[in-house]
Design a protein around this nucleic acid. Structure first.
Lengths: 248, 248
DNA sequence: CGGTACCTTGAGCGGCCTCAATCAAGGTGG
DNA sequence: CCACCTTGATTGAGGCCGCTCAAGGTACCG
């Protein structure tokens, strides 16, 4: 019966202290006792199927969510229906920070593959962070990091050309995957061309064309969602230097 | 001598409890005693001349700053020198939240007119927020609001056409000015066309042309930096509805 | 008065979008 | 097993929006 719920709850109690993501996630800098206090607050983890919503925009905000396994996108919509993907989240990354502001989520969070998240009831986190200064500090840092990340996306959307955006996107993914122990130059895209385009402010055809172009130049290998980075330095040159500066 | 310092310090001690901005700024929801605790933490206010930097990107982060009077822009730069204005701040708005993340400011903050700010030493704010739950909560909300704001800018930069961006920009300014008691439909731009363009992901010529276009249509009146909104509904239609929906 | 910063307007070009056709992969039912 | 549909990706052709380059114009200021 519990296996057939629409929103199945994982029966195993999760534990930060034993989680392989603790270096990437919330518990950074906590000692053992503080960690076990944190454990008492974390709710059971929740499993989601591909395509399932973790939360909807407008929904009442109760909890933050940390990705344990899987892959998510978050997106905002304007009044007239236009949609913008605001980010892609992988293991150890937090979702829902936008909801604190008004008490309602301001974006949708959708699983791009079968995933598992930890639920962090916010008011309990808030109380706990008063007793654990390093947790409070880490929380402030997390939110600040999100602001910095958003500012960099603004820079990308405001200044960069299509090729530069795609290069920056691939390199960003590569970097995040490698800090999680995955291959930096050989990975599977979890999102569609349209979702990449929505995130980067491009149409899906432009994304497709640009990937093809990179492949023709021998910089990457594309096989549907399977991407291999062949000449990372050339990709980096595209975004950090002017085009006339040739690699090394 | 103090008047001729490069970074002059205003000699008057500021006080949140007597500040006309207290409904817009940090003290929201504090009782009298909490407010006086906050007062002890706020440093002397600092005056800046037009064009002066409040902080530079890369500088060590010590304090947040709240605008008392005047007008600021914040901007980030990419490695190859491209610059993106990430926001304009007016009275009661906070700057520096991005610095918490790494301990260094990640953007520049520059006064667009002679201005005055309150300095909020962050580690003292952090300590104080442990004793005043409503202050802690308000801090979380402020940071979250910044995240939501950035997401909306991302939506603008990723989805909107030039006319829509300009309309959204004017309406946003109008709204913020009116909550501060200024006229909503008659104001002076504090920033140049180029700065508007940088914020909106457009070139200054496009900004200028679009403003002229709006004027020709009788939606606004433009006299250099003096802007009057004549047909607010038409501007709103431009962004929220499809163009065929005419406002009654 | 000359100098400078800023704004406006025009002409032409180019990058990305739009529209559309084709193709591959996966699911379903006969 | 194949016919059929759906979904997503690729590729082409053409058009438009915003950029680039350029030439004034205007306000401010030493």
């Amino acid at each position: 019966m519990s296996e057939h719920n629409h929103i199945p709850l994982h029966s195993l109690k999760v534990s930060c202290s034993s989680c392989s993501l603790r270096e990437l996630c919330l518990p950074v800098g906590l000692n053992r006792e503080e960690m076990s206090q944190l454990d008492t607050v974390i709710r059971q983890s929740r499993r989601l199927k591909r395509g399932e919503y973790l939360f909807h925009s407008g929904e009442s905000f109760k909890s933050l969510f940390a990705v344990r396994t899987g892959f998510f996108k978050t997106c905002v919509a304007s009044q007239d229906g236009r949609e913008q993907v605001t980010g892609f989240q992988m293991s150890g990354e937090l979702m829902g920070l936008d909801g604190i502001s008004t008490g309602n989520h301001s974006c949708d969070a959708i699983a791009l593959e079968d995933s598992e998240v930890c639920e962090l009831p916010f008011n309990r986190m808030e109380t706990l962070s008063r007793d654990i200064p390093s947790l409070q500090h880490h929380f402030y840092r997390l939110m600040s990091r999100e602001i910095v990340r958003d500012q960099n996306v603004m820079l990308l959307l405001g200044n960069m050309k299509a090729e530069e955006r795609i290069a920056a996107f691939l390199l960003n993914l590569s970097q995040r995957l490698s800090t999680r122990g995955f291959a930096a130059n050989d990975f599977i895209l979890r999102m569609s061309r349209e979702e990449i385009g929505s995130f980067l402010g491009l149409k899906l055809e432009t994304v497709s064309r640009t990937l093809s172009k990179f492949q023709q130049q021998g910089w990457i290998a594309v096989d549907h969602k399977h991407i291999q980075l062949v000449k990372v330095d050339d990709l980096k040159n595209l975004i950090s230097g002017c085009s006339h500066a040739n690699g090394h």
